[in-house]
Amino acid sequence: MSPLTKNDLRRIFEKLDKNGDGLVGLDELNCLLDRTGVQLSLEELESLVGTPCLGFDEFIFFYDSISNQKTKTEAENDEESDIAKAFKVFDLNGDGFISSEELQSVLVRLGLLDERSGKDCTNMIYYYDTNMDGMIDFQEFKNMMFPTIS
């Protein structure tokens, strides 16, 4: 399904604005949502929207907020960026690899590991270190965090 254009949204808005005052009331909006299978009470809708009626710009903002307009590529890029940020948290020296010492340091700082548990970090590195270089690179990190992402 392709996203609605601004012209499509304008036509929908004008159909909903039955009295032509340039505003769509929540009751009118709720009727549209009901027809599309979204069931909300007027109280829930007002809590979500934050106002008793919407002008056209607010209607567009509401549409954008409830529709998932990201393409698969955009979503994958966002996910890749999030993984890269997480990797940088562990790559303390910025060399592109996570050593056992870096992993231990971060996990201790986060309170997730006792300082004396260095052997545990070595074992974790060993388990996910597919190229056997003794460190985790970015691809290995992605495989460790999300085994289905490659």
Rank of each mutant, 00 (worst) to 15 (best):
N19D: 13
C31K: 05
D91Q: 08
V24S: 00
K88F: 03
C31V: 03
V24C: 01
F146H: 15
S81W: 01
G55T: 04
K85A: 10
T51K: 00
N93E: 02
V106F: 00
N77D: 05
D8W: 15
C53S: 14
F61D: 13
K18N: 02
N77I: 04
I149W: 15
L113F: 03
R11T: 11
Q104Y: 00
D120S: 09
G20L: 05
L16N: 01
T73I: 09
I83N: 11
S100L: 06
L92S: 06
L112W: 11
L113K: 06
M144C: 11
N7V: 14
F146A: 06
I125N: 05
A75S: 12
M144I: 09
F141K: 04
V106E: 01
D64M: 04
I66Q: 11
S67A: 07
N93S: 05
G22T: 06
F138D: 11
A84F: 06
F59R: 09
T122I: 10
R10K: 14
G134H: 10
I125S: 06
L16G: 02
E140A: 10
T71L: 14
T36C: 14
G50D: 02
D8T: 10
V49P: 00
N123Q: 14
I66D: 09
D114L: 09
F87S: 11
N30F: 00
Y126S: 10
Q69I: 08
M144V: 10
C121T: 07
N19A: 09
T130V: 10
N30G: 03
F141H: 00
L112V: 10
E102I: 05
L26T: 00
L29C: 07
Q39V: 11
L48F: 04
Y127S: 15
Q104M: 08
D8I: 13
E74M: 13
G22Y: 02
F62Y: 13
Y126C: 09
C121Q: 03
L16S: 01
F97Y: 15
N143V: 09
N143G: 12
G20P: 08
I66P: 13
D21I: 04
D17P: 09
S67C: 09
F146V: 05
D78G: 10
I149D: 15
K72T: 08
D21F: 03
M132K: 15
F62D: 07
G50H: 02
R116G: 07
Q104P: 04
F59P: 05
S2Y: 02
G37F: 03
S117H: 14
F61R: 14
S67I: 06
T122Q: 14
E74R: 11
G37M: 04
S150K: 15
K72C: 07
V89W: 00
E115F: 04
E102F: 04
T71D: 12
K18C: 01
Y127D: 13
R11N: 10
E28T: 07
E101S: 14
E44Y: 01
M145A: 01
Q69H: 13
D21W: 01
L48I: 05
F56K: 12
R35E: 15
Y63C: 12
M124T: 09
D78C: 08
F90K: 09
A86D: 02
E14H: 15
L29K: 06
M124C: 08
F56P: 15
Y128V: 15
G111E: 03
L103W: 01
L112K: 15
